[in-house]
Amino acid sequence: MTPTLPPIPLPPSIRSRYVEDINGLRMHVLEAGFESKGRPCLLLLHGFPELAYSWRKVMPALAEAGYHVIAPDQRGYGRTTGWQADYDGDLHPFRLTNLVRDALGLVSAFGYRQVDAVIGHDFGSPVAAWCALIRPDVFRAVVMMSAPFGGPPSLPFNTADAPTRPQAEDPVHRALATLPRPRKHYHWYYSTREANADMHRAPQGVHDFLRAYYHHKSADWKANKPHPLKAWSAEELATLPTYYVMDLAKTMPETVAEEMPDPAVIAANRWLPDDELAFYSSEYTRTGFQGGLQWYRCGTSGAFNAELQTWSGRTIDVPSCFISGKQDWGTYQRPGVFEAMQTRACTAMIGYHLVDGAGHWVQQEQPAKVSLLLLDFLRKATAAR
């Protein structure tokens, strides 16, 4: 029996509901534009450490434009249940192709054979990209936000007479650890056994941990001045802020605590006031972080690259768009991917936009601008089909 949970602080035009039997999940969904039938559908996919709630500021505008807007708590998150996040458990349910299956099952449950666009932010961005790559007949346009998509992993070629050797561990991690200021990449930290407990039992508490984390990655942290990196090397990666390339001996709560905003800055925050942050912190206090961390582990383990190589050489051919904050390092954190997305991975890219006054949480920091960009893209994508 599902415990009674407190209501979600939502605008009146958004409702919270559950949808049963979605690829083994009881999926919690936020929904706008549900008042009338026959509307075109948009699917919004959040990232880490976020929730469907992260879309609350753009959903009303999209619904007012005539769309049925669906935003789930994804597998491993929030009020969606049916997943297990034991560190020693099975990672297969969290691999990208199964997350696409979750998305496909959800829109099918609502009766849609096609959706006008799938829109993903942060780790939701690669899920959205893979939705469009694998099922372009269903997901007829895609918006990737804050995490560019460089295409599927390549298959090895010309190996009949010179077999490939097993891939060695990426030497960049050893190089990072031996820098004069030893560092580590946050993806690999998030893949450790300790990461969930570090954050779930943060010395400052989950609420203050999330406050500092969101602040550090936002445009409010004035040192966020991103630029392209020259190479995937320890020296270049070490120029990233510590929320991406951490000091070797520090946890994420210790890392962001150094940039905790003072009470006056918190009180002045309009894009994430404390009562809204309290919803995130209450949900993560209840669930922990391991469900989302499993996604990172799927990537860093390399265990599912062979499956993704099934689509090697395939491109995203539906209309596509990229939106990020101008102060968001996520656009450049993996050298060359932003450029590869525009030149190779997407063949029908309508635009890419870096929104000034936004860091990583672009649809929360600048919701009016993002809403306008999304609606403009949807108009152009419809005209292009």
Rank of each mutant, 00 (worst) to 15 (best):
T2M: 00
P3L: 10
I8D: 04
I8E: 09
I8Q: 11
P11E: 07
R26S: 14
A32L: 05
E35Q: 15
E35H: 13
P40G: 13
L42N: 06
F48Y: 14
R56I: 13
V58R: 07
P60S: 14
P60Y: 08
H68E: 11
I70F: 10
A71Q: 10
D73P: 06
T81C: 03
Y87E: 11
F94E: 12
V107T: 03
Q114D: 00
V115E: 10
D116W: 03
A117M: 01
S125Q: 08
A128H: 08
V138D: 02
M144S: 15
P148A: 09
P152N: 07
P153H: 08
L155V: 10
L155Q: 15
N158S: 09
D161F: 14
R174Y: 05
H185M: 08
Y186I: 15
H187Y: 13
A197G: 12
D198R: 07
M199F: 01
K225D: 14
K225F: 03
H227G: 15
H227K: 15
W232Y: 09
L240E: 09
M252H: 04
M252N: 06
E254M: 05
E254F: 09
E258C: 04
M260E: 02
A264S: 11
A264F: 02
W271E: 11
L277I: 13
L277E: 06
Q290C: 11
Q294A: 14
C298M: 07
T300S: 12
F304I: 06
E307M: 12
D328E: 12
G330V: 00
P335E: 01
C346F: 14
C346E: 13
T347N: 13
M349D: 00
A358E: 15
H360G: 06
L378K: 05
A381F: 03
A383F: 03
R385L: 00
